[in-house]
């Protein structure tokens, strides 16, 4: 695949009904290429999660088109969208969303199980990816036996085990301390070195800009900047601060 792995074209989204109806996204264009880690930054209520939900084929845009691995999502039924997700998109959530009754390896395997892959293959593959995220010795541990950082790495393993074209991560470091956050971002950055795979991270966390190949800023549902240049942490802090101030005012 030579084009973007994930593409949003002129996306608009209205949320709410009646008097509470408002435009959450307006004319958003974003293309995620393979081999790069993109940060999507913006203050609370800026439309980050709405955009992530649309890019993840969980929310239908009011206007515009989303293309996943070259396929348009327009007019697709929920089951078809679910198939697109399981075959092409890996998700990492802020709260990890691991299955508390399953071990680490089963939490990873489940992403292959829903594809109907054999248990022999899925166990082998799950072991490999757990080793990639540094948890080869924790395969039999339950989520309650793992630290927050370890749980997030299990979630990352689950996201990549199916070899998706794109990883969408929602605030993956928000619940972690600096050390664990750094470890998680290192893993995501490593994953993004694969030219066939793009990583989009939605974040508030200015500490992680050092891992970004590209930073996209969004405010009030509009992309206000899209920079490929290396951004210093200080600049990111300034950007974050100005957004917060504007929000408060």
């Amino acid at each position: 695949m030579t084009g973007p792995v994930l593409e949003a074209i002129d996306i608009g989204k209205f949320l709410g009904i009646g008097a509470g109806r408002f435009q959450a996204l307006s004319a958003v264009n974003l293309a995620i290429a393979g081999g790069e880690l993109t940060l999507l930054m913006g203050p609370s209520g800026s439309g980050k999660t709405t955009l992530l939900s649309i890019l993840g084929c969980m929310l239908t845009p009011s206007s515009g088109t989303v293309r996943v691995h070259g396929q348009s999502t327009a007019g697709k039924k929920p089951e078809e969208l679910a198939k697109l997700r399981r075959n092409h998109i890996g998700f990492v959530f802020q709260s990890y969303h691991l299955f508390p009754t399953l071990t680490a390896i089963d939490n990873v395997r489940i992403a292959l199980d829903i594809r109907g892959e054999s248990s022999e293959q899925s166990i082998k593959r799950a072991m490999e990816v757990l080793a990639i995220v540094g948890l080869a010795n924790k395969t039999g541990s339950y989520p309650r036996e793992l630290s927050g950082g370890e749980q997030q790495r299990v979630a990352i393993a689950r996201a990549i085990v199916g070899d998706p074209s794109v990883i969408l991560a929602d605030e993956p470091t928000a619940a972690l301390d600096a050390e664990n956050g750094h470890a998680v971002m290192s893993v995501l950055a490593q994953i993004a070195t694969n030219p066939a795979r793009g990583v989009l991270v939605v974040t508030h966390d200015p500490r992680i800009v050092e891992f970004a190949d590209r930073i996209v800023s969004i405010e009030d549902g509009i992309i206000i900047s899209d920079s490929r240049a290396v951004v210093s942490e200080e600049m990111a802090l300034q950007a974050q601060g100005s957004s917060s101030c504007r929000n408060k005012s």
Partner: peptide, 13 residues
Amino acid sequence: HEFATLRAIGSSS
């Protein structure tokens, strides 16, 4: 939330 996670990661109905 577990079922929602399953749905989110692409599980079929």
